[in-house]
Design a protein around this nucleic acid. Structure first.
Lengths: 131, 131
DNA sequence: TTCAAATTTGTAATGATTACAAATTTATAA
DNA sequence: TTATAAATTTGTAATCATTACAAATTTGAA
């Protein structure tokens, strides 16, 4: 589907910056940091500001267009794939890959006193290339 | 078991600060931040430095005495319960509670190309008091 | 007791993120 | 089109948890 249409469906005005940022995320699927997005796009958008990327990620987050990945304690990462899945980060090269489960994401023992709205599943270790 | 003995078993010299810090964590079981530990202990240890708490947590982490909890994007939290379990954080009051599963922590679909060393399971939402 | 090693401490630096106001762009109405 | 308001973008400064680092203190062995 068209990126501008997708943004409009989430009640976001599809400005040029927003389209390019979401396009970057959907094309690369690399769970990028703000720095990665900015560093890549500024080559073709010389007036782009890092603050705009921060603002846009916050907007995307609140609109449900992206999900936050806190697998790295240093920098926030974002995922435009909002389907329920987990993530693995290689302790050596830092690359992040998706993790899927047989069936829905596993739920903890019944906690009828908790209203769970979001689940994050992170695994860490060594990837194929680094082990 | 005695805290000093426990530290020695992990090849850590049981200095007074280290004993008090680990004692705080085991007594409170509140998944504290460095600030929480410091703020509580400094009342009875006026010369305690926040840097010491940071140093000690790093030491504990590398020695396997505590585990890092990255459920909060702002501050690191630590858990002296090193058994495999998940965590839930209330979006409203910030309290963190333990999550357990029927059986071992669920594993993702076979990724024979990944060497998984650690798994973190985080859930967020509203706790009993806040929902 | 003496000296070296380990631990603790305080201050300064780092770096990702946020605050904020000015500048620019876009949309709306006359 | 033109004027005006609203939304977006931008740059700079502030924030704040964490780290770096060297000096001070404590500990332990000879």
């Amino acid at each position: 589907m068209d990126i501008a249409t997708y943004l409009k469906e989430h009640n976001i005005k599809p400005s040029y910056s927003r389209i390019r940022i979401l396009d970057y995320m959907m094309t690369h699927k690399n769970h990028p940091t703000v720095d990665m997005i900015y560093g890549n796009l500024v080559k073709e958008m010389p007036t782009l500001s890092k603050t705009t990327v921060y603002n846009t990620m916050e907007l995307f987050l609140n609109s449900g267009v992206v999900k936050l990945i806190s697998i790295d304690e240093k920098e926030k990462r974002y995922d435009a794939d909002i389907s329920t899945h987990g993530h693995f980060r290689c302790d050596n090269c830092g690359r992040i890959v998706d993790l899927y489960f047989d069936g829905p994401l596993p739920m903890p023992k019944a906690h009828e006193d908790l209203e769970i709205r979001e689940i994050q599943y992170y695994a860490k270790g060594l990837c194929k290339h680094c082990k």
